[in-house]
Amino acid sequence: MQQVCRIFWRDVIVLFEPSLQDADALFVVMAFFLSWIICWIPLAVISAIAMKWKPFQPLQPEQKLPLLIPLYLLAPLMLWGTSWLTKTSFSEYGFSGNLATFYSLALGLALGVLGIAVVFSCQIWLGWYAFQETNLKQVRPILLPVLLVALLVGGVEELIFRGFLLRELDLDSSVWIAAIAGSLIFALLHLVWEQQETIPQLPGLWLMGMVLVLARFTDGGSIGLAWGLHAGWVWAIACLDTAQLVNPTGCVSEWVTGKNKKPLAGVAGVVCLLLTGGVLLLMLRYF
């Protein structure tokens, strides 16, 4: 696989000689995402045929994972090719692979799960959610598989959006403009999968991107803490949804608890992000 990637990127570099090292950041970003999608399409077609999915039919939740996994597994290879062309190391994207990165990952994972636990516990106490104790037995078998998926999704998205994209946009603008623009791109790209359910989440997704940028700053430029937070949120929410551990009682508007049962589409999810951001600011100031 590595040899195939080398051949692919060697052919690409011939087209864009002498080098992409000094190329416009916007061009590099567009080239990366376009190449990523082009390389993923054949894999997506194979997965769709295997699932007997027909075009224009809505994707079921169980059909999304076979499409997403190849997309996310392909991303590090594409990013490796981009870093080779632009002569940029992965450490500049915030990933060093040292022990400190994985310590930050563990810390972020704990903070992410704790944040979700606090917010949902408060909503259960207020009577906005009902806890389904009988479904607890469904949690144990899914904990590890969902964690692995969450680590993959969180790791790839942080490497791309808070790593590669933030670094490239920062070359042509201030870091906060890069953060705002990168978080907007992060939010809008979620529209690819579910437009109707994603539109109410767009402000929350943008805020999530900004909080994760703050996590990278807090971690001294490493994406470890942001990766952990992202994975922790995905892990906790996915386990709650899959096991159906909590259900809204309907005593308050769904815009409070989250429209379509999506926390980021409600006040509660935004509060969780703001509280996390506050914790990160305290860490940035005192540690």
Results as ranks from 00 to 15, higher is better:
Q3S: 13
C5A: 11
W9I: 13
W9D: 09
V12W: 14
V14S: 14
F16D: 11
F16W: 12
Q21C: 10
A25N: 10
F27W: 12
V29K: 06
A31R: 09
L34I: 14
W36V: 00
C39Y: 10
W40Q: 10
L43P: 08
V45Q: 13
V45S: 11
A50V: 09
K52Y: 01
K52Q: 15
K54Y: 04
P58V: 03
Q60V: 00
L67H: 09
L68A: 15
L71Q: 15
L73M: 13
L74T: 07
L74P: 06
W80S: 14
G81P: 11
L85T: 03
T86D: 05
K87E: 13
S89D: 12
S91V: 11
G97V: 10
F102Q: 03
L105I: 01
A106H: 07
G108I: 04
L111I: 15
G115L: 00
I116N: 08
V119Y: 04
Q123F: 02
I124A: 15
W128L: 07
T134A: 12
K137Q: 13
Q138V: 00
P141R: 06
L151Q: 04
V153F: 01
V153C: 06
G155C: 05
I160H: 00
R162Y: 04
F164H: 07
L166P: 00
L166T: 04
L171N: 06
S173R: 12
S174D: 13
G182R: 07
I185A: 09
A187E: 01
L188Q: 01
H190V: 01
L191C: 03
V192A: 08
T198Q: 07
P203A: 00
L205D: 06
M208P: 01
M210I: 12
V213D: 00
A215F: 01
R216H: 01
R216Y: 00
G221R: 04
G228F: 02
A231K: 01
G232K: 01
Q244H: 11
V246K: 02
G250Q: 15
T257I: 11
G258K: 09
K259G: 04
L264W: 08
G266A: 05
V267M: 12
A268N: 12
G269N: 08
V270D: 06
V271C: 13
G278L: 15
Y286D: 07
